[in-house]
Design a protein around this nucleic acid. Sequence first.
DNA 1: CCTGAACAGTTGACAACGTGAACCTTTCAT
DNA 2: ATGAAAGGTTCACGTTGTCAACTGTTCAGG
Lengths: 154, 154
Amino acid sequence: MDTQPTRATAPQTDEITREVVDLMANLVALFHREYEEAAAARSLTGAQAKVLALLRRGPMPMRQIAQTLSCEPSNITGIVDRLETRGFVTRQPDLQDRRVKLVAATETGAGASEELRESLNFAREPLAALDSEERTQLRDLLRRMLTGATGPGA
Amino acid sequence: MDTQPTRATAPQTDEITREVVDLMANLVALFHREYEEAAAARSLTGAQAKVLALLRRGPMPMRQIAQTLSCEPSNITGIVDRLETRGFVTRQPDLQDRRVKLVAATETGAGASEELRESLNFAREPLAALDSEERTQLRDLLRRMLTGATGPGA
DNA sequence: CCTGAACAGTTGACAACGTGAACCTTTCAT
DNA sequence: ATGAAAGGTTCACGTTGTCAACTGTTCAGG
């Protein structure tokens, strides 16, 4: 962790930290709800939408999807099954390794995912309360928080 | 009606907004994962932990729990059932309205919830990347976002 | 070359979540 | 008093998620 001699190394009961955590929890709940709603509006579940969002950068092995979403590979099987029957993704063989199956978004799937992402951008009521300068500030803070954490994610 | 650098009243394709939304999505995923983990460490599911957290401010009718969590009342029945069999909550009659059942956290339940909340405060790696001034800045931004949104929550 | 360990994905059984409809009890307006 | 409306529960159903067992593939040693 951090070995700062000057700063409080134990923010255990830090007042501000506690409040930020609570605010975060509320914001997380709010975002989560909106995300599920937006997905449902396109007859997708939250998990399906997440997988589809991952595939925006290209095909991906099942296992990697599982790792990125921090769940068991067997769980991904079912989700991809359902996405596949609806024509949102396909399973392609990996030519380098025949054990691997590459999941790729179809035209329809990519479209739905992009549409959903687009719908989030201005459906976010909370962000409307901030002007562009504040948004920039927020962006910088979030960036710093995320680059120092468990990893850049995707 | 195009990209006005001064003030964008239509942040439809605003670059910063889009990035903030993406960062938020990552942060939300991260928080969600940590929350589930922290709950699991106390043999609670995420949903159970959320209900238990709601009861910190006192007993609450089933219906109000459902409304706060934005789900169907029938769903809460099951969650409270499981919490009750483990001794984390009790169902009490409401003396004013005999239709209502007030769910109250037991000593054990309140303890587990407080413990979980406490464990989140310093387990949040992301926050460690910010100094106290930045945290204050973040707190203010989050406050503004939340007070303008769907409501203060509780 | 063969054998066995390790890996990718699937299957099956199981628990929790979440919805929607039907139902019972209680409240409340008329 | 009667009927509508509200609070909870129950049931049936689908989706997520875990874990253990299984098939097929890859790869390292012998």
